[in-house]
Design a protein around this nucleic acid. Sequence first.
DNA 1: CGGGACTTTGAGCAAATTCAACCATTGTGG
DNA 2: CCACAATGGTTGAATTTGCTCAAAGTCCCG
Lengths: 250, 250
Amino acid sequence: MPEVRKALVRGFNPCEACTVRHLSVCDALDAHELDRLNAMVTQNRVAPHQMIFSEGDPAAHLFNVIEGTIKIYKLLADGRRQITGFLFPGDFLGIALHDRYTYSAEAVNAARLCRFPRTKFESLLREFPKLENRLLQTASNELAAAQDQMMLLGRKSAAERVASFLVTLAARARQRRQPNRLIALPMSRADIGDYLGLTIETVSRTFTRLRTSGAIELPDSHHVDIVDRDALEDLAGLDYDEPPAAVRAL
Amino acid sequence: MPEVRKALVRGFNPCEACTVRHLSVCDALDAHELDRLNAMVTQNRVAPHQMIFSEGDPAAHLFNVIEGTIKIYKLLADGRRQITGFLFPGDFLGIALHDRYTYSAEAVNAARLCRFPRTKFESLLREFPKLENRLLQTASNELAAAQDQMMLLGRKSAAERVASFLVTLAARARQRRQPNRLIALPMSRADIGDYLGLTIETVSRTFTRLRTSGAIELPDSHHVDIVDRDALEDLAGLDYDEPPAAVRAL
DNA sequence: CGGGACTTTGAGCAAATTCAACCATTGTGG
DNA sequence: CCACAATGGTTGAATTTGCTCAAAGTCCCG
């Protein structure tokens, strides 16, 4: 039983060497607790466009993104699609603790994932309240992000949506101490459209308009250079809660 | 110290008599644990349109809805509003565990709330993992609902949005074993519009069209009689995950 | 170098919004 | 108790934003 040995013999724990642990829920655990997590994890490589799971599948596993980009989405019967989120390294996939997945997950580009059996992970949650607390924290953040996205989808114009998208990606990059002027867009225009509630064509036109206005450069279709961050943030329609700089309306 | 006495002398606990406990997070606690909760709660009445808290306020309290309807929403600088949810008896308000509220909460009609100081509640969470687990469960459900709403806002037509709204309200009523044909709409057309990402006028026109088509009756502007539930559910654009009856496309 | 997928651009169209007027209900003060 | 103002809701006409349909351009990979 190699799994048992892994749990007993300390010092052989890939989780400890994990490059994105500081970004992930695993960070809530100490070295010994990580052993327990490590005993149930399998690493997983997925190719671009490969499905990770589909809406309606039995929710057998939870995941942590190690590398690459994942999209999660829901479909209507006639094929209309809403992407509800993009996941990046460190992000947790499958918080929804239901018996079946309520959305589909697919790799945008080549990605690596840690995979946890759901039942085992849930028993670990019961055992380590600080892990559960961390997960609640994560869920709480996602809920706030979901509300921002509802505002975007329900009330913002196409230009505001695209600007918000870019500003959010840039903020995420900054958070990870990555360059935040030249932003990578691993996803297609169709993906961006389905995330922002727009068509491919409108996304494309809006990018062009932002370029023409001087707010961004488009070195190629999968990179955006944010030339004028202030202009972009203005356009993004500052939410009441996060005033970007000094100014705050009202 | 009456608070201490309340915690020690059993039998004087309003939480135990709470009529909506079975619907709320409090249900995770047993009688003795309820005493602890009861020691930190204050009941609260709010008048129609009264603010409970505003986006950006220090998040001093968490709430449980006992009676009435609450709306939570976000604003843009120019006044555009997105209502991200309506809360009914038993619903928990303030899951977002941040230092400041990231949205505003306002009473739709006369309502009663239980109010918990946030820091005390959080220490109770640490003490009672099953309460924390229940909260995680709740957050998980809200996340799933938020994703449904993103689909609605990003990809559904006006008719589909209104139909979805009514179907969801009816499902909620059924869940609470209330009549699910005659649905009460305590909120205004403006509220419905800001929830569905539509204007007042479009909401009104869509109601009229649904009435003309025979799917609903409108005894008055705050009640909907669901005459043809199947038609409404068809229109709602069945999500992939919850097939309403037998049929499931593809 | 060629083919397919993705992206951009253009023209016309449709759904929902905006602007405006009217109607209904309610509550208030004369 | 009634008149009337105020609020909220409905309906209509014109406008606008983003969508659909169509075609051309670009990039990547074999």
